[in-house]
Design a protein around this nucleic acid. Sequence first.
DNA 1: ATGTCCCAGTCTCTGGGA
Length: 267
Amino acid sequence: MRIATWNVNSLPARMPRLLAWLADTGPDVVVLQETKIAQDAFPADELAAAGYESVHRGQGRWNGVALLSRVGLDGVETELPDVPGFPDPADPPEARYIAATCAGVRVAGVYVPNGRTPTDPHYDYKLAWLAALTRHLGPAAAAVEPFAVMGDFNVAPTDADVWDIAEFAQSTHVTEPERQALADLRALGLSDVVPTISKGPHPYTFWDYRGGAFHKAFGMRIDLVYGNAAFTEHVRAAYVDRDARKPGVRGTPAPSDHAPVVVDLDL
DNA sequence: ATGTCCCAGTCTCTGGGA
């Protein structure tokens, strides 16, 4: 079974790339983040024509998560219980969580809040959101069935997961509370499935569009796969599909600022 | 590194988010 996660940064803008990538890569299950498309505009028919059942939780132009499967799709969740909204915790939950069971593997897809800066209210929201995620995933993590939570966590787990830690002195994504939130999540019994290095010394998954970051290897590993023991014992390979982040040649669609992470399981 | 990309609304430009 091949499972992948990809922050596509707008499904409407990325459909040509996504359809080509699905055909080339052949994943059985994919979680997508930042679909940035309204619920009723989600291209379920096009994805079905490509062989994928889908479920989507949309939020207009912001956020949005989807799960695609060609091996069945049961037990769908589109809400994270007891999660705060933003800016008021009482606001409706944002579209950042989706989960389903596909061929016996439980998969949760997440788009963790960015945080913006460590002094911004959005940063506290990020930590509260991660705490709600950890509260909810305990039973799934402890289950005997393979389980993984994957997606754009907007946290670099170690200093080696950013191109230059000195550049992050006043930045989110690398602070101790964010990393502790990931440690709390792993403490449920989940392990970081670190993908193979595709080029350069680190398996980055994100490169800012600005400043030629991709070609300078100014990247970050913030798209993560956390699996329970029943999941990780079957992992045969995991890699970052860096090619999917490459700029299009003239006349072809532009890339997302994130690359997919692909995991192969022997089940 | 902030030299880009994406979206919607104010709609052939602007502002916010990442």
